[in-house]
Design a protein around this nucleic acid. Structure first.
Length: 465
RNA sequence: GCCGGGGUCGCCUAGCCUGGUAGGGCGCCGGCCUGCUAAGCCGGUGGGGGAAACCCCGCGCGGGUUCAAAUCCCGCCCCCGGCGCCA
């Protein structure tokens, strides 16, 4: 029988040293490989043992059905004896099963050969786009993050210091209130008003419009998932502090539409002719952000809830690397459309999440902070998620089955993109220019801003020359 | 939320009352046959372990009764219909 199994499990059995190399690249303790191998071997051995006893019991059980009354009594006694022996073994098997499951599921994905090896600092910028506005005192930092890392990015030095997105939102524009939100919900929540709300929704429509035109199927997914599902699509042990749970129920708020989109074909067999299946989901994302400490506490850069348009693809194994490039290119096109200067980074092995074999981040230059900040993350998870969710493809020829590959990428995450617009598109007077490409998504609404968002208590005529 | 009906190997379906190897159809895969195609015929078509022979597990999920559970009992999930409630 052609065995069809998870690529990582296959590697564990056939070439543990190679798997160790992948784990080592992630800067994780490689002893998990030996431990997993030990448990896997013991699990398989015990399975054979228990099956032998079960077999003997089954043979006797079948005989009883046809046995004569006097023989019957003797056979039932024998069956009972075997059953007693089995009882202990079944208990042990259950423990081993759980240990095996837990151990195997804790293994991270392999690392693609094109991923730079090392910690965060090894992450490699591979492309840049746009002209960054660099405040004169940030020039060193800017060059450090571009030219020194091998990518030449266009820039202009500015003499005035742009106002940070948090100040822009709450003080200059007066269109957000995180203090009141803190009182009623907690830190990292927000009230947004008027023009920023229009902007939020326009960004979402823009991404949805763009991606549906590329042939992606538009989806509103569940915003909560069962425990089994959420633990299958993320590294739950590592991320459980980031996920909200509904009290008293086996339900978890999604951290991104990726989670529910991955589950869309749970337990299914997909004909190869139907692949790749491309989806664009739109949903809120809920994140606890526990462990973020005081990072980005101000404003709406790092928050507990935001809206996001997400790309998600199920593909055949041989298609996934090409599609990974497609996803990041889609995101790049979206940000080019917005006119936001960015670099694309090939994330280092030590900074990859357990499900991802490779990840690109799209980072926009933030002129007030003097650094690049992540706006988009595009991952190829290979068969890591599909093995857990049992999503398979079937090839017509030869009826070959295998696990599909899954890929995900941000399209646009609204609040974070708004922070990028607030910092990049402000002028020295605090007027924010709305990206022209959003115009058509604002035009239908009488009260929506069209070209600029103006500072509060300043006459609109300030920019009307 | 209450009452009733249901969930079977990709899809459809039999088996459940009365416990004893899960049967059939469709689709698909392989083969035979065949100027070609179609039809027809034969075999295969859930998961795990094993080099293989073969073995185990599997009838929504989890328990229980029994030598033996798709079948009997209990809890849960989901679907359909009716009633109630409701943006």
């Amino acid at each position: 029988m052609p065995s069809m199994s998870w690529s990582v499990l296959e590697l564990l059995r056939k070439d543990p040293e190679a798997l160790k190399e992948h784990v080592r690249k992630r800067l994780m303790d490689v002893s998990i490989v030996d431990k997993a191998r030990e448990i896997d071997t013991a699990w398989r051995k015990f399975q054979t043992e228990i099956n032998e006893v079960r077999h003997r019991h089954n043979v006797i059980s079948e005989k009883i059905a046809k046995a004569s009354p006097e023989e019957r009594q003797r056979l039932v006694e024998e069956a009972k004896r075997l059953l007693g022996q089995l009882q202990d073994m079944e208990k042990r098997m259950k423990e081993l099963d759980e240990l095996w499951e837990k151990t195997i599921r804790s293994l991270p994905n392999i690392v693609h050969e094109s991923v730079p090896v090392g910690d965060e600092s090894a992450s490699k910028p591979i492309r840049v786009w746009g002209k960054a506005r660099v405040y004169k005192e940030h020039l060193d930092q800017f060059l450090e993050e571009t030219a020194k890392k091998g990518v030449e990015m266009d820039y202009e030095v500015i003499e005035w210091k742009p106002i940070g997105h948090a100040d822009m939102l709450e003080n200059v524009l007066g269109l957000g209130d995180t203090e009141k939100a803190s009182e009623v919900a907690g830190s990292r929540f927000y009230y947004l008003f008027d023009d920023i709300v229009w902007l939020d929704m326009a960004l979402l429509w823009y991404a949805v419009d763009f991606l549906t035109q590329k042939g992606y199927t538009l989806v509103i997914p569940p915003y909560m998932l069962r425990g089994f599902v959420i633990t299958s699509v993320i590294d739950y042990e590592g991320l459980k502090d980031a996920i909200y749970k509904i009290e008293g129920e086996d339900l978890y708020l999604i951290g991104t539409a990726e989670h529910s989109l991955a589950a869309l074909h749970m337990g299914e067999e997909i004909d190869e002719d139907l692949l790749p299946l491309k989806y664009v989901g739109i949903s809120p994302s809920f994140r606890k952000e526990a462990g973020a400490g005081n990072r980005d506490l101000k404003g709406i850069f790092r928050v507990h809830q935001f809206h996001k348009v997400e790309q998600f693809v199920f593909s055949l194994p041989e298609q996934s690397w090409e599609i990974h490039e497609e996803l990041i290119r889609n995101a790049e096109e979206l940000f080019k459309g917005l006119g936001l200067p960015f670099r694309v980074v090939n994330i280092a092995s030590g900074d990859l999440g357990a499900p991802a074999a490779k990840k690109y981040d799209l980072e926009v230059w933030m002129p007030a902070q003097g650094r690049f900040r992540e706006m988009v993350s595009a991952s190829n998870d290979l068969d890591w998620q599909s093995y857990r969710l049992k999503i398979r493809f079937v090839r017509r020829k030869g009826r070959v089955k295998g696990y599909v590959h899954t890929l995900n990428s941000t399209g646009i995450a609204s609040t974070r993109t708004i922070t990028a617009i607030l910092e990049n598109n402000q002028d020295p007077e605090g007027v924010v220019e709305i990206p022209k490409i959003l115009r058509k998504y604002l035009e239908p609404f009488a009260k929506a801003p069209k070209d600029y968002i103006y500072p509060r208590k300043k006459s609109a005529s300030a920019k009307s020359f």
